[in-house]
Design a protein around this nucleic acid. Sequence first.
DNA 1: TTTTTACCGTGGTCAGACCAATTAACGAAA
DNA 2: TTTCGTTAATTGGTCTGACCACGGTAAAAA
Lengths: 257, 257
Amino acid sequence: MAADLEITRLGEANGKGFEKVFAFLRERLLDGSLRPGDRLIPERELAAQLDVSRPILREALRALTVLGVVEIRDRVGTVVRRPDLSVLNDFFTFAFAQRAELIDDVMQARIAIECQAVRLATQRATVLDLERLRTALGRIIETIDDPDLGGLADYEFHRTLVDAGKSETLVVLHNSLSGILMISHRKRRDLLRSFASMKTYLIEDHGRIFDAVAARDADAAERVLREHFAIGDDYRRRAALGERDDAAGQPMRERKA
Amino acid sequence: MAADLEITRLGEANGKGFEKVFAFLRERLLDGSLRPGDRLIPERELAAQLDVSRPILREALRALTVLGVVEIRDRVGTVVRRPDLSVLNDFFTFAFAQRAELIDDVMQARIAIECQAVRLATQRATVLDLERLRTALGRIIETIDDPDLGGLADYEFHRTLVDAGKSETLVVLHNSLSGILMISHRKRRDLLRSFASMKTYLIEDHGRIFDAVAARDADAAERVLREHFAIGDDYRRRAALGERDDAAGQPMRERKA
DNA sequence: TTTTTACCGTGGTCAGACCAATTAACGAAA
DNA sequence: TTTCGTTAATTGGTCTGACCACGGTAAAAA
């Protein structure tokens, strides 16, 4: 099954020895003969078995470490890890340093994940989940004038929402975006300086999302969440155009109506 | 911006030499002193400069290769690469493979990706995209009695749909699931033996998805796609319960009404 | 029986050597 | 002076064998 998956990237690299080791390990990791928690045989043995030198073997192990697949433990051995895409935060760090324009595309994945998760949350959220959401919502309110803590509070709300959907895969994917999401939320909070109406937007929108989840209404939850993202994007667009709220802080929704 | 992101994963690894090299290169890559197209000094020199052995330096270079940051060219040197989201394929492939036993949960990611992509497709699909979808739809129809080719045709339709959304991130994510999805579609086609009404379901549902995309109606497209998934799941559930269509091949929708 | 000592095992790293293949430099011939 | 052939240099790919650090275990001593 998983053996049908194809890894193409590393196949382009030079390094016959490296490829041999990587392919050997990839095959076993994908077909399930190596599973999280398993410990590989000692490096010296594995290198001998594969007929490569130990530094080459280590290159392959290090590559798998970066992919989050294994963990090299000093004096213990190399252990297969439970996949956890938080390693992608490293990737995004490098990628966005060179190509900031990629962020908007990556945010499509964020939207996809959260919209599916919020639907699941309407079916799966426990009372405890709702309590945590309520707490996260309260946190947004109390940090409304603090960009640093506020950005974190916003992230926490969205994270809690995804958790409430109880899909481990979606949680893992969401975690892979945690770094860029925290920055994104933090930046969004900076816009409050130009747009006082955002206070209302942040509090009320998150409140509506909560209400829809509590009401177990999947369509409403997704719709409200999508609108939340769209309005957030609009604030960003307006900021880019040099706009500000008028002195009275006209709410965004009334402006659109 | 990107400098605000924090690299935590590799910081946890043992390997002081490795970390030293990685940190050195990371810093220069993030601050722009190393840019795409630049060639690093020869390995021997760089290792001497950093006071580490060459195999250790290579471990770090290999790590950066996996992150898509550099490319090690035989006899040329190590060149800084332009970031490219296709690198994500490796990450996701390993992550999903290890979760394959939780396939229903992995399918939540599939649903998330396709529903977001189909919305984007209603905005972004070109005439060529629509032609490709039309072709893929025709392919579904002509393979309706062949489970092997039919499974591939189904996968191809969904793949084309995601492509039409023109989000690189969503495409990469979807590709990472290709093995799992092809098997899933293949199995779905096997159910036609028990449920003749699936022929109609497959042809008409895919047709409706196409129509909604062509009509540029995001809400309808998503709704139809979600219903498509839900009905597919229902066939699966019924098969698990040992049910079959009656001899006349009653369509599923009329049964639910 | 308990404590101490020594050894083993494993990853982390080093130094130096060799291989392969391309490119550049140098010398000889036209 | 220009061209051609040969040799050397360069760079990554890989190997071998050695040493270091430290935790865990087994054996010896109290």
